[in-house]
Computed example of a mutant assay.
Amino acid sequence: MQNNDRRVSVVIPAKNEAASIGAVVGQLAQLPMVRELIVVDDGSTDATAEVAAQAGAEVVRHPYSKGNGAAIKSGARKASGEILVFMDGDGQHRSEDVARLLERLEAGCDMVVGARQRGGQANHHRGLANAFYNRLASWMVGQPVRDLTSGFRAVWRDKFLRFLYLLPNGFSYPTTITMAFFRAGYSVVYEPIDVRQRLPGTASHIRLVKDGVRFLLIIFKIGTLYSPLKLFFPISLGFFFTGLGYYLHTYISAGRFTNMSALLFITSVLVFLIGLVSEQITTLIYRDTDA
């Protein structure tokens, strides 16, 4: 079945994007496969909602800013299409790439992510950070993850809604939904895309230091969400071998077993047991998904 035979809903989270949202909506409205255009105005203080509505989008308004993830959840609940396409409202994503994502989805995939090519990151520091997240996620899932934080993706709505309660309200929703799909055994593929420079008058809402700390916390969330033992077991081994090394040192130098060695060994066991319990809880979270 061709993708224009299905109802495709495009969801665009937007905050203070009045300078770009009209052009974004206008370009998407010309695509024959798009049947529903939803812009979620996340507490904008400019004319984002008015410009989006004039361009032909259905607008969902938040009375105050709740976060990018919260806007995604509001749009997903409002959408009625079988397929959801998520895009940014700053003009970076190309409307002509939507068809490519939909073709991959219709070919038998569960989620298709637009993977930004080298040079498509906002800046050098963001590029390095995203490369680190991609490597970590690839190790966690055992599959190559080419763009963990991309906000441009197409997904089957019924599958996406199953994980809605897991999504945070902030900027880490792409990370969370990607890991959740991998954990549930769904097929996630990446389609290479080029991104435009931000349109004049638009700016990233991500702050390097503040959101950098949040992304570090996301790393730990990834581990506990996907496979806790992959995170806790290496830490447990670290404590164990540190304790073993310290014990050998004290045994050779003083001929005794110290309290510090005992503490390190006990910590190793406790960390492992916490990881084991977390693994069982994670299994329960995904028990109702059909892989």
Score class of each variant (00 low, 15 high):
residue 291 A to H: 10
residue 73 K to P: 06
residue 200 P to K: 14
residue 53 A to Q: 10
residue 114 G to W: 04
residue 8 V to D: 02
residue 126 R to I: 08
residue 111 M to E: 00
residue 152 F to D: 01
residue 224 T to P: 03
residue 213 V to W: 08
residue 278 S to N: 11
residue 189 V to K: 09
residue 76 A to T: 03
residue 85 V to W: 04
residue 248 L to S: 06
residue 108 G to L: 04
residue 271 V to S: 10
residue 282 T to S: 14
residue 208 L to R: 15
residue 158 D to L: 03
residue 251 Y to W: 14
residue 33 M to W: 07
residue 290 D to K: 15
residue 138 S to I: 11
residue 148 L to R: 05
residue 245 G to L: 07
residue 238 G to A: 08
residue 94 R to G: 02
residue 214 R to W: 08
residue 130 N to I: 11
residue 265 F to D: 04
residue 216 L to T: 09
residue 209 V to F: 13
residue 239 F to E: 05
residue 252 I to L: 09
residue 265 F to Q: 09
residue 160 F to K: 10
residue 287 R to D: 04
residue 184 A to D: 01
residue 284 L to S: 14
residue 230 K to I: 12
residue 67 G to M: 02
residue 4 N to H: 15
residue 2 Q to V: 13
residue 79 A to Q: 03
residue 35 R to S: 09
residue 10 V to W: 00
residue 161 L to K: 11
residue 27 Q to V: 04
residue 280 Q to R: 15
residue 179 M to F: 10
residue 117 Q to M: 13
residue 69 G to E: 04
residue 198 R to Q: 15
residue 237 L to N: 12
residue 145 V to A: 00
residue 212 G to D: 06
residue 45 T to K: 15
residue 49 A to E: 03
residue 144 P to T: 07
residue 93 H to M: 11
residue 145 V to D: 00
residue 226 Y to V: 10
residue 99 A to Q: 12
